[in-house]
Simulated assay, not measured.
Amino acid sequence: MTIFRSLRGGLLLESSRTVAACALLGLLAAPLAAHAADSVEQSFVPSGNVHVLARFHDAQPSGIVHLVDGRFVLSFPTSAQTHPGPVLAVWKGGSELQPFPDAAAQKELKSPLGMTVDALGRVWVIDEGVVAGQTEPQTPAIILIDPRTNSIIRRFALTSPVVLPDSHINDIRVDLTHGKNGTAFISDTSQTTHPALIVLDIASGQARRILAEDQSVSAAAGHVMEVDGKLFRYNPDHPQMPQGGVNGIGLSVDSSRLFWSPFSSRRLYSAPTAVLSDPVISESGLSQAVRDEGEVGVVDGIFTASDGSLYMADEERHGVIRRSPDGTLSLVAHDPRLISPDSLASGEASNQPVNSLIMTVGQWARLPVFHDGHDMQQRPYLIVRIDLKNR
């Protein structure tokens, strides 16, 4: 050990211990005192514009839409875990819910997931057609609801060969400018390795599967993602995190272009809706029409603002990305409470400038299926508001 000596050269054993202890304390105290002033990587600091609006202890919200009349509707899927209460509901603030379109309709719904509102104000809902523990084949469908009468007005069943046994029907956008009564675009993320887009002609009710397993809808080989501070690699044989192909989809303001992103990827793609909705165009022609819009992030929900910006829930950054019409990217929110940012809706009335976003926050990566049967979720589940002013 180091020997401390007096000025006279004598050994001062006890003094040396005291001095050594003081020196050690000084070494330990200095970094602690200076820690508050240390510079840190800014993404670890919450952006400060995320505000919790609601907490749900029993059911995990996923889809969200803002109706023309001002109401917000939430979906509470049951394909991964069942729960009490409505599966589709008007959110009245806090944790107060009202069954939508009404209480009786809940019996007609199994697992509502992705939703959208079309240009006529109607609500389109993905129903996965399966509940947790179900052994019968799934029966996915698209549900059309008129919010003015609070009633289901049409149901479009999705059957083979449009959907496969391993399909995972996820999200939907509706273009009323192509086809006699419009066209719906649906993402099939796939539970394994067979993702695709599904195109539904609204007038005839006929659906077809396009871009099946195309690179633009598929998981990126070797994709690695951060989940709860850990890294996991895409593995279709033994998933350890939510993964798969095309998930979030978005429509341009004028409905001329569809945007989408595979979940196990960081890229955004798009194609003209005129091409995607045309049943005559070959698969090779469809693939050639797809444009790689570049890297964005690990995207879930996509919301299109009235100025043409795309707001995308970014799972890995635990935040929201804005892609401006010229392709510029910015991170408009990030917060450790955004465990699995999911679906987005405008906080403002229809066709108004977007000054805030309302977003559901999931904990899908903590489900038992990814943790050898252990439930790692930490209730409650959240709905948040993200303020966009000066962002």
Rank of each mutant, 00 (worst) to 15 (best):
L158T: 03
H178A: 10
H238S: 14
K230H: 07
L144P: 00
M115L: 11
T135V: 14
D127E: 02
V125G: 12
T116P: 02
F185P: 05
V162D: 03
R208I: 09
Y234K: 04
M225F: 01
R209K: 13
P137H: 06
T159R: 14
D201A: 11
K230V: 06
I152H: 10
T149L: 11
A104C: 05
W124V: 04
S151G: 09
L200C: 06
Y234R: 02
Q138Y: 06
L231S: 15
I142R: 04
K180S: 13
D237N: 13
S204V: 14
V217M: 06
L231N: 11
P239R: 11
I126Q: 07
L109E: 09
V131I: 14
Q106H: 12
A220T: 12
V174G: 01
G129D: 03
E136Q: 14
W124G: 04
I152Y: 08
L176H: 10
T139I: 07
L113Y: 05
A196G: 07
R155T: 15
N181A: 15
N181Q: 15
Q106L: 10
N170Q: 13
L211N: 03
L109Y: 05
T189V: 09
S111P: 06
G229R: 12
P147C: 11
D118R: 06
N170E: 14
K107L: 12
A105L: 07
